[in-house]
Simulated scan of single mutants.
Amino acid sequence: MTTRSRQIHLASRPTGWPTPDNFRVVEVDLGDPGPGEVLLRNTWMSVDPYMRGRMNDAKSYVPPFELGAPLDGGAVGEVVASGDDAVPVGATVLHGLGWREHAVVPARAVRVVDTERVPASAYLGVLGMPGLTAYVGLTRIAQLREGDRVLVSGAAGAVGSSVGQMARMLGASAVVGSAGSAEKVAWLTEELGFDAAVNYKDGPVGRLLAPHGPFDVYFDNVGGDHLEAAIAHLDDFGRIAACGAIAQYNDTEATPGPRNMAMFVTKKLTLRGFIVRDHDDLTAEFHERAGRWVAEGRLVGRETVVDGLDHAVDAFLDLMRGGNTGKMLVRL
């Protein structure tokens, strides 16, 4: 028996900002799962900034998406047929074949998740890759210490909002964020417990941050002028966890670097980039701590939800424009 389904393929590689013309919806027929496989009906899929880099034909930490082939990414789905007793029909699982309505996946490549305790979508947000990224960046990369003052850019996104909340629970004395609207700033300060936040569209970000520094830790999701501003406002021996640089993902020309790099010497600063997949050894620790924080109501996530595979590309493009608050998700 076959299952008729649909997937999003990469039709052409974007130059600069992606457009809907770079993508194509394709109908496919999937066979029954073989031994050790499961057939999933996806219920949620994630769109994430890192996916933009995979649309380029360039060497990186993960292979580029192939032209004429389906995109992939984090997803949660229900098992509708199973060739492995360990993953029964009806189970809800986390896996890596998003951008499609159904998928046949090796059973060893899925993780059964508990949807009695938290909604399934949380495993793509605060309890998923974004949450783990925040935890790794703070604890291992920035080596957050009791009393540190923390600055995070992209603070109203899935990673940034988790960074701010976790930093406080891990002992930060102050947490300051940068976001792109007054509404996002209000969410950070009024609901998530940030001590302060700035709307970077209100003026030069360095000037906006001046009243709130100096900082001991900067968690960078943006790059560009935010990185330059953070360098200026870090205290001696400040640490930067470089997670992303969304400000330049769609640039077609080389982006100038920060003009104040000499401060790395005079302030004795440290910058370390990281990829979360290199730190899988922290996954169990993260799940234990973050699961407890979520259960206690101390770690919360907001979701921006778009419905239907037909609008998945719209969700991705809106994410790249900063149209999300919290985690951008597609409900299938």
Rank of each mutant, 00 (worst) to 15 (best):
K184P: 11
G177S: 11
P204C: 00
T255V: 10
S5T: 15
H102L: 13
G98S: 13
R100G: 14
F274M: 08
T139F: 03
H233I: 03
G257E: 03
E285A: 13
A245L: 09
D280K: 09
K201C: 02
L332Q: 03
V93T: 14
P64M: 05
P33C: 12
S153Q: 12
R239V: 06
I240H: 03
G297A: 12
R52P: 05
A120H: 09
A242N: 03
W187D: 00
L10C: 01
F23T: 05
A182C: 07
D148P: 09
A156R: 02
P106M: 11
T304S: 15
K184N: 12
D21N: 08
I231Q: 04
V113H: 12
V38E: 08
M263N: 06
V205G: 07
G90D: 07
A75H: 00
V163P: 00
T304Q: 10
V89W: 05
Q7R: 05
A245W: 02
L124T: 13
D314P: 01
M166Y: 11
S46G: 15
A262S: 13
R145Q: 14
D314C: 09
A284C: 00
C243P: 10
G98T: 09
V306F: 14
L132H: 12
G291K: 07
A182V: 13
K327E: 00
F219K: 01
F264S: 00
A91P: 06
L144P: 08
F286C: 04
A262E: 11
Q165M: 06
T43G: 13
G244P: 00
G308H: 12
T15Y: 01
R149I: 12
L271Y: 04
F274L: 02
V118M: 11
L208Q: 01
A230G: 15
A312E: 03
R117K: 14
P18G: 03
H226R: 04
D85W: 08
H287C: 01
G16K: 09
Q7C: 03
A158H: 01
D220L: 04
F237T: 08
M51H: 15
H287V: 10
G36E: 10
A167P: 09
G73M: 01
L269G: 01
L39S: 11
M55D: 11
D85Y: 02
N260A: 12
D21E: 13
H212A: 05
M263E: 15
G177I: 08
S121D: 10
L234N: 13
R140P: 04
A75I: 05
L329W: 07
V26K: 06
R41M: 03
D29C: 00
V294S: 02
T325S: 09
V118Y: 13
F23I: 05
E303S: 09
P33E: 09
K268R: 15
A254I: 07
E146F: 13
A232Y: 03
T283K: 14
V112S: 07
H95L: 14
E78C: 05
P64N: 04
S173L: 06
L39G: 11
L332N: 01
L234E: 11
S162I: 06
F23V: 05
D310W: 10
D48N: 13
R4T: 15
P64D: 05
E116V: 13
A229M: 12
E191K: 15
T325A: 09
